[in-house]
């Protein structure tokens, strides 16, 4: 911390001047038509001192392509991730638990881990890979633990996992690389290590949001949040394409580091989720902005509480092409369906 000037003396003139200014502040505060929910930041004060996001927190209805059609409460508190398995089962990571449930038949099995579950990926056989902070645990399709993988390093901070028939890709936000394993847990390589002529590494991950998805085809997609992009690689790690721009406008990714999460629809389109200004959007298979799944007005409490910091809304896609959103604060998976006219 820097050293600062000695305190200014308190005198009568200064006191009166301040009192007059404060009366002015009170008047101003009354005039400011700010959000009034309890806990909302900067509900009063001089406008110049307010961090103002108002113009980015309302979605023009013409961009709304999806509508909410249902909510399924999480069986456990602290819902963080949601994903859909090949048999249509949902897997919800909440606190130290992963809960299997089916939207029609209800809750299935549940597994409990020693610490917070940070990422989950079903395999093609209905098996499950679960990531806690520093390692993965493998479960079979009935929820029986099969193996515990070695931690990739003492500081590992796993935030994304994706299993294919042959490979497993794990995003480690601490080392800012994607780890490539075979299905048995043998490390095959690291994607995103500092290459020749490159400084600062490939991935820029300022906060613990770093997501990864494989497929369709021989293609791996990785969120590069500090560069506000999604980037694709061959499964062996060769860079292919990228898209995305930093912008608070709807077409871009807002804030210091977004998207926080993403998933792909069967037709190759991307569903992205941003933190800070909570918004879920849909992009074409080549990265053109198409519309909004759910705007900030669908998640008002995410903008209101400064004590909590940003919360990422994880997204998944079910067999019917509906978008599932893990709404941590509501403690529920919210279901959004594409509007027929869209």
């Amino acid at each position: 911390m820097n050293r600062s000037r000695p305190p200014a003396a308190v005198n009568r003139r200064g006191f009166l001047a301040r009192a007059a200014r404060r009366l002015g502040w009170v008047g101003l505060a009354g005039l400011v038509t700010a959000r009034s929910r309890a806990g909302a930041p900067q509900t009063g004060g001089e406008p110049a001192l307010r961090y103002n996001l108002d113009r980015f927190t309302k979605t023009d209805p013409k961009y709304l392509r999806f509508e909410e059609v249902g909510r399924v409460p999480s069986p456990r508190a602290s819902l963080r991730r949601v994903t859909v398995g090949p048999s249509g089962h949902w897997y919800l990571a909440a606190g130290n638990h992963v809960c299997q449930l089916h939207p029609r038949t209800g809750p299935g099995w549940e597994v409990t881990l020693a610490s917070t579950v940070r990422c989950v990926s079903p395999g093609p056989e209905g098996d499950l890979l679960v990531g806690v902070r520093d390692h993965l645990e493998a479960f079979d399709a009935r929820g029986q633990r099969r193996s515990t993988w070695a931690a990739p390093g003492p500081k590992a901070w796993l935030t994304g996992v994706c299993a294919t028939a042959r490979d497993v890709f794990v995003a480690d936000a601490a080392s800012r690389v994607v780890l490539h394993y075979d299905r048995g847990g043998t490390l095959l390589g690291r994607i995103g290590t500092r290459g020749a002529g490159r400084t600062g590494g490939v991935f820029v991950v300022p906060s613990p949001y770093f997501d990864v998805h494989a497929g369709p085809g021989e293609e791996l997609w990785v969120a590069n949040p500090g560069r506000h992009r999604l980037e694709s690689f061959g499964l062996e790690g060769t860079p292919k394409t990228s898209w995305g721009v930093a912008s608070f406008d709807l077409a871009g990714f807002c804030g210091c580091c977004n998207p926080a999460h993403f998933v792909r629809l069967r037709d190759g389109r991307f569903i992205t989720s941003e933190k800070g200004i909570p918004r879920i959007k849909v992009y074409s298979a080549t990265g053109e902005f198409e519309g909004v799944v759910a705007g900030p007005e669908a998640f008002p409490e995410y903008l209101d509480n400064l004590n909590r910091g940003p919360v990422g809304l994880d997204v998944a896609v079910d067999e019917a092409g509906q978008v599932l959103v893990a709404d941590t604060l509501a403690g529920a998976v919210r279901i959004f369906r594409e509007r027929p006219s869209a």
Binding site: M1, N2, R3, S4, R5, P41, Q42, G45, L49, R50, Y51, L53, T199, G200, V204, P206, S207, G226, R227, C254, G255, C256, C257, K275, G276, L303, L306, G309, P310
Partner: peptide
């Protein structure tokens, strides 16, 4: 590249917290 360092020049800071909101809402 692409990292930047941010420092507070305390004699200029009036403690309004505007930067705090921006940092907490989006960042760490």
């Amino acid at each position: 590249d692409p990292y930047y360092e941010y420092r507070i020049d305390e004699p200029l800071c009036i403690g309004c917290g505007k930067c705090v909101v921006g940092c907490v809402l989006f960042g760490n």
